[in-house]
Amino acid sequence: MNALIPRPRSHPAPGAVHVPGWLSLDEQRELVTACRAWARGPVPMRHTRLPRGGVMSVQTMCLGWHWRPYAYSRIAHDVNGARVAEFPDVLSELGRRALADAYEDEAAGAAYAPDTVLINHYGEGATMGMHQDKDEKSSAPVVSLSIGDTCVFRFGNTETRGKPYTDVELASGDLFVFGGPSRFAYHGVPKVRPGTGDPATGLAAGRLNLTLRVTGLTG
């Protein structure tokens, strides 16, 4: 078997950093196990219904704050009326370490205080259209972690869903952070490559994506 060629970190745009292989295999397995437990509720993973009646092809769940288009709340009124589970300390610690490593800035990492995570599962044929993460009241960076199948992550500009954009291959264990001038850039996932993940992560198929955010909300 050929040795894997190391993938260097890259900066697709100002404030955006891709760090390949950031999560160890053990960390990926631990997150997969945790996500399975979190997906059982109190607010389970679901296909989110959009305001115009469409249904997202990815399955989504949240901790800390519940997201629905286009707002956050503590109660999942659009799912089962339950209060969303608390945001776990383990993800706070992971987010701080991720930001410090991506920006190579220990102070920035120490100051990072995510209070919600959106967990998306991409099954067969699932994609994500170009969108902005702008439902938060904070402009703190978004920390994104990938596990499972490799995807094409399209990272664009702050003005339009179209070009210019950069397509980045996000593989299992990769970290992607976007903040500063790129915090409100349009981004999406036009394709997931089936069968490219490592079953040793505990995820036999599909892609798991965790995005940590600071909502800027209280209550």
Rank of each mutant, 00 (worst) to 15 (best):
P88G: 01
D89P: 03
D89W: 00
D89A: 14
V90N: 07
V90D: 15
L91R: 03
L91S: 08
S92Q: 15
S92P: 03
E93G: 01
E93L: 11
L94G: 08
G95Y: 07
R96E: 13
R96I: 10
R96V: 07
R97G: 15
A102K: 00
E104K: 14
E104G: 15
D105G: 08
D105N: 15
D105W: 01
E106G: 01
A107S: 12
A107C: 05
A107R: 13
A108Q: 11
A108D: 02
A108K: 12
A108W: 05
G109Q: 07
A110F: 00
Y112H: 03
Y112R: 08
A113L: 12
A113N: 11
D115I: 00
D115L: 02
D115H: 02
T116R: 09
L118R: 02
L118K: 01
I119R: 11
I119T: 13
I119K: 08
H121P: 00
H121Q: 11
H121V: 14
H121K: 09
E124G: 05
E124C: 03
G125S: 09
A126F: 10
T127R: 13
M128Y: 04
M128R: 04
G129A: 13
M130E: 13
M130G: 04
H131Q: 04
Q132W: 04
D133A: 02
